[in-house]
Design a protein around this nucleic acid. Structure first.
Length: 805
RNA sequence: GCUGAUGUGGCGAAAUAGGCAGACGCAAGGGACUUAAAAUCCCUCGGGGUGAAAACUCCGUGCCGGUUCAAGUCCGGCCAUCAGCACCA
């Protein structure tokens, strides 16, 4: 009589064993083994601890890592926490504690809970972005960025949240703060920026070097928003000039007015020549007050003011047109000025209607009296130009080239790339972040702190709440602010802004390669051993924030010769959300949340691990069901109970094919992150074993190995009971290709496209032999009354007989 | 508005390269075991029609059309849901 499957004691036993034996610690070099880096985003350690979403991604990626190890790879699978940032600070303020305390407490909870899931992390490499030994190197890298000219303090308009201060564009959602959802406004402020736009083209183009999921690539491309066009200079008849950016140079003869962004500085220099200045000034003030949201709201009526007394000269035909300012032109994109062609741009069309401006059609092929004939409708359709002097009659594509050629030659234009993506605003007026290691000297300007003095420590303070005036809380600490210039020794002031939450997460995956190095940020040999990351899993919400920042960061380090690769992640995948049993997002208020710890208590970590993989396609959302978890527990019990029938060695003839087929399928599916079908294949095998009711020790061992990535405690225990050795000493079972070759196959036979029967035939049967055999099956033969006009035969798949009555 | 994804039984879902649609699992129904329940094991399970039954037959992957011997899969046009972007010149 066998023992009952008791998940609780088994799981505790093996977790202790793995901990004590440091089973999953990994060296940078292991003779005879190929290295592979498997990575999952390091989480923010929230006080609530693990939720089901963590369970899904962590256990699935753990299964992948475990399978790779079984296949003989030396696998780096590390864990860390990202504890700097607004979320931690806000929790601390709410609980009236120091962020340091909260973070230490939460990390401990996280580690404990993760170990209860049996995850095979290398715990010796654990890092934490708010540790001094870590952020010292974040600061050091910032200094390298500064020296390279990629970090700069700029006076810019920034997104301003009344609670959180400065936000990057990536942190603003629909005009609200992505953290606290307060409405954001625009504010002028001096900020550190990292010049990410200089890398725009490479960030866009190098996506082709990666194997990210298509929708991830697309989102990134969309965000980067690369567009190719022409920058053209326009003389102002009354003196001065300005430039515009356009992607539709073919419409240049259709210009009937020009529009400047209200913030455009050129307007100030033309003040004397503008006769309605007070009106202009009023409009500019009104625009400045508007939040980003108001300003970008769609379908809003166009507004603007004409700059009376000014006109711009179209360089292709010398035509003078009026100049307007309007808030639909954004100061931060292109040159902050546009040429307006109301016949071929809908915004210009609406503006022209409002201000009664003439419209000249320059591309033939549609009626423009009610709406504009826009580029998405005319490009690639062979449309021809009209009203365009010597370019009339050319196709749009031809004209694009020729017009550009002409005006570039005349020195009034140049080809240009533009990006929707902006530079990365890198300052936050917050306490809980890495201090920016810069010093402002009255003689030398901005000077980096000496590298040997790093880290610039975040001072321990009593009060760290954000200030009312929006300045960093650090600015109120004279001992922190006052310092001497590292260059000339003069009295100087330290920068009091801190880095954004995204700083530490932009390079943590590099540090895992060499986490305890106190001489350099990471040793080059360690980086070469592991990079690039083979598989990187993380949330969809990071596609345009963290993922873009990390790619940028690594490209800069690559250019500095500090990392061996210019793309850090080969493959990127994302897990789908786990919804509550009611199909809604799990939340406290909906009361549909599931505590994974309770599920682990009830059914065991192995059952939960299986269910998180079996619940559905990994990247799709899935609906929680405890019944499904029970089914996975049942599978483990069924496998456990197989002990009773196991006997002998070698292979069971009836099982030979399916055992080998399953080994292959589970391997392929885990490789392709199709965990759900891997588990269903195992279920099919187990069902078949029950049907045959025979199993050898060799086969049982293979079954335990292939399910071990999903149920590692369970497999370890059974391997021990059966005397099969330790899990970490075995390898993935090899597939006996001979067993997969079948002598006899089943072939569906169609008559006129409908399946009429399935016949058993030797695999090597020819088309004629199969046709003759099929005629012996009455259920098929009865449809063959008539002339056989055609036979379609796909070897080993199907035969279709076409009969004419 | 633009871009992308998705749409398959009562439910979660499978279907490598156009080749037996619904694997696997849940729920449901029936049976075995049991004093009983739980657990376990076995069977049935897309819809309509004919039939006592076995069986036979037609329909069926959001809708309409096309290509093909053959379409969940490819093409064209719609509809719905979700997500991202949102005056980007």
């Amino acid at each position: 009589m066998i023992k009952k499957y008791e998940h609780s004691s088994i799981e505790k036993k093996w977790q202790k064993y793995w901990d004590e034996h440091k089973t999953y610690e990994v060296k940078n070099h292991e003779p005879g083994k190929e290295n592979e880096y498997v990575l999952i985003e390091f989480p923010y350690p929230s006080g609530i601890g693990l939720h089901l979403g963590h369970c899904r991604s962590y256990t699935a990626i753990d299964a992948y890592a475990r399978k790779e190890r079984l296949c003989g790879k030396n696998v780096l699978f590390p864990f860390g926490t990202d504890a700097f940032g607004l979320e931690a600070e806000r929790t601390a303020i709410r609980e009236h504690k120091m962020p340091q305390e909260i973070v230490a407490r939460n990390i401990e909870t996280f580690h404990k809970q993760l170990k209860q899931l049996g995850l095979s992390f290398d715990w010796s490499r654990t890092i934490n972005s708010c540790d001094e030994e870590y952020y010292k190197w974040t600061q050091w890298q910032f200094i390298q960025f500064f020296k390279k000219g990629l970090a700069e303090k700029q006076e810019t308009t920034v997104n301003w949240c009344p609670n959180c201060g400065v936000l990057a564009n990536e942190e603003v959602e629909n005009g609200t703060c992505c953290q606290c959802h307060a409405e954001t406004t625009q504010k002028a402020k001096a900020q550190w920026v990292l010049k990410m736009t200089e890398y725009g083209e490479r960030l866009a183009d190098d996506l082709s070097k990666t194997e990210y999921l298509d929708h991830i690539k697309l989102s990134q491309l969309n965000w980067i928003g690369k567009s190719e066009g022409v920058e053209v200079d326009f003389e102002i008849a009354q003196g001065g000039k300005f430039s515009i950016f356009t992607t539709c140079i073919e419409t240049i003869y259709g210009i009937t007015f020009m529009v400047l962004a209200p913030e455009n500085k050129i307007i100030d220099s033309l003040k004397d020549k503008i006769s309605n200045w007070s009106e202009v000034e009023a409009y500019r003030k009104e625009t400045a007050k508007k939040s980003e949201f108001d300003r970008t709201e769609m379908n809003k009526e166009k507004t603007g003011v004409k700059l009376e007394g000014l006109s711009a000269i179209n360089p292709v035909n010398g035509k003078a047109v009026d100049i307007y300012i309007s808030d639909f032109v954004l100061a931060g994109y292109g040159t902050g000025a546009v040429m307006a062609v109301p016949t071929h741009d809908q915004r210009d069309f609406e503006f022209a209607d409002k201000f009664n401006i003439e419209k000249i059609q320059v591309i033939d092929g549609a009626d423009v009296s009610n709406k504009a004939f826009e580029k998405q409708d005319y490009l690639g359709k062979g449309c021809k130009l009209i009203n365009s002097e010597e370019f009339t009659g050319m196709t749009v594509e031809e004209a694009k080239e020729k017009i550009t050629e002409k005006i570039v030659k005349n020195g009034v234009a140049r080809k240009k790339l533009n990006f929707k993506m902006r530079d990365w605003i890198f300052s936050r007026q917050r306490y809980w972040g890495e201090p920016i290691p810069m010093i402002n000297c009255p003689n030398c300007g901005w000077v980096p702190e000496k590298e040997e003095n790093l880290p610039v420590r975040l001072p321990k303070v009593d009060s760290y709440e954000p200030t009312k005036d929006g300045e960093s809380p650090l600015s109120a600490i004279p001992a922190f602010v006052n310092c001497t210039c590292p260059k000339c020794g003069a009295k100087a002031k330290r920068e009091t802004d801190t880095m954004p939450g995204w700083a530490g997460s932009s390079w943590y995956f590099l540090r895992y390669c060499d986490p305890h190095n106190d001489k350099e940020f990471v040793n080059q040999d360690a980086l070469k051993a592991w990079l690039p990351v083979a598989l990187y899993n993380g949330g969809n919400e990071h596609t345009t924030r963290h993922l873009l920042y990390a790619r940028f960061w690594v490209k800069v380090l690559f250019d500095l010769g500090l990392v061996p690769v210019d793309e850090p992640f080969k493959k990127r995948i994302s897990q789908g959300l786990i919804l509550g049993a009611d199909g809604k997002k799990m939340s406290k208020s909906a009361g549909n949340g599931i505590d994974p710890r309770i599920m682990v208590d009830r059914y065991g970590a192995d059952s939960l691990r299986l269910w998180m993989s079996f619940i559905g396609e990994y990247s799709e959302k899935a609906v929680w069901s405890e019944e499904g978890l029970k089914a996975c527990n049942k599978l483990l019990n069924r496998i456990w109970n197989l002990q009773e029938i196991v006997s002998g060695t070698g292979e069971t003839q009836e099982l030979s094919f399916i055992v080998n087929q399953t080994i292959k399928k589970v391997f392929d599916d885990i490789d392709a992150t199709k965990f759900n079908t891997a588990i269903s294949a195992i279920m099919i095998l187990v069902n078949e074993i029950y049907r045959v009711n025979k199993l050898t020790n060799d086969e049982y061992k293979k079954l335990l190995i292939i399910i071990s990535p999903f149920a590692p405690h369970f497999s370890s225990e059974l391997m021990e009971i059966m005397g099969y050795g330790k899990l970490e000493e075995v390898t993935w079972p090899s597939v006996d290709e001979k067993a997969l070759v079948r002598n006899e196959i089943e072939m569906p036979i169609q008559v006129n496209g409908k399946v009429r029967g399935v016949i058993k035939i030797p695999a090597e049967f020819s088309q004629d032999e199969i046709l003759n055999e099929a005629k012996n099956y009455p259920e098929i033969a009865k449809y063959l009354n008539g002339e056989i006009v055609k036979v379609v035969f796909v070897p080993k798949k199907i035969m279709n007989i076409i009969v004419k009555a």
